[in-house]
Design a protein around this nucleic acid. Structure first.
Length: 210
DNA sequence: TGCCAGGCCCTCTTTAGGGCCTT
């Protein structure tokens, strides 16, 4: 059984090291590429949400002030994820907030993150943009909910991940495009992507990335 | 005083600079 947790945070800024806090978290759980469950919650941290963030996300100070405390939300989120490996769009961003918010909640965060931005750059170098919304449009994937809200963005990232796994099977013959392969692929130097996929698949054809 | 992310990746590069991507 291949389980992957796709996560997205909305936050008050770009860096927890500069005092930014999460305002909302959403996680979509995939099993063998199929969505089986999800978790979503706003969270109260006491941090002020700048006006431009409210304009971007629609999340207001009143909304988070009425939400559950962040520590409890993060403890629930960690229980929901369990030991599943994780994926995010620009994982460098979400993994920092995952670690920072879990640390404040007193929960360990040992999860490995794969990144759909890095994977997309390797699998679809011809894409005009690697922004989440642009990739969703590029692949003709469904848009659900309000963009820049955590659940809608996590659902789009999950759709994108499922599309990547489908393409790895169909185009390159990779039987098990699981999290371990995704981690290897995102770390692979671009000129070596074709060789890596040929090693894991049954089709020697050079992928678009090479 | 004023400013404040940071890792990845491309190129007019590698003794560097700047765009992308996330909020």
């Amino acid at each position: 059984m291949s389980r992957i947790a796709v996560i997205d945070f909305e936050t008050t800024g770009v860096s927890p090291g500069q005092g930014a806090r999460a305002t909302e978290v959403a996680i979509v759980l995939l099993e063998n590429g199929r969505r089986v469950d999800h978790y979503q919650s706003l969270m109260k941290t006491g941090a002020w949400i700048p006006a431009f963030i409210t304009q971007l996300t629609g999340i207001t100070n009143a909304m988070v002030n009425a939400a559950p405390d962040a520590a409890g939300v993060m403890q629930d989120a960690a229980r929901f994820v369990g030991d599943a490996p994780m994926v995010a769009h620009n994982a460098a961003f979400d993994s920092k907030f995952w670690q920072a918010e879990l640390a404040l909640a007193g929960v360990a965060a040992p999860h490995a993150f794969a990144c759909t931005v890095l994977l997309s750059r390797r699998l679809y170098p011809e894409a005009p943009s690697h922004k989440l919304g642009s990739l969703v449009d590029y692949h003709g994937l469904p848009r659900t909910g309000q963009a820049h809200r955590a659940l809608a963005d996590a659902e789009m990232a999950a759709e994108l991940l499922a599309r990547m796994q489908h393409d790895l099977r169909q185009r390159w013959g990779v039987a098990e495009p699981g999290h371990a392969l995704l981690m290897a692929l995102q770390r692979c130097a671009k000129p070596q992507v074709g060789k890596l996929l040929a090693q894991h698949g049954n089709r020697p054809a050079v992928p678009a990335a090479c």
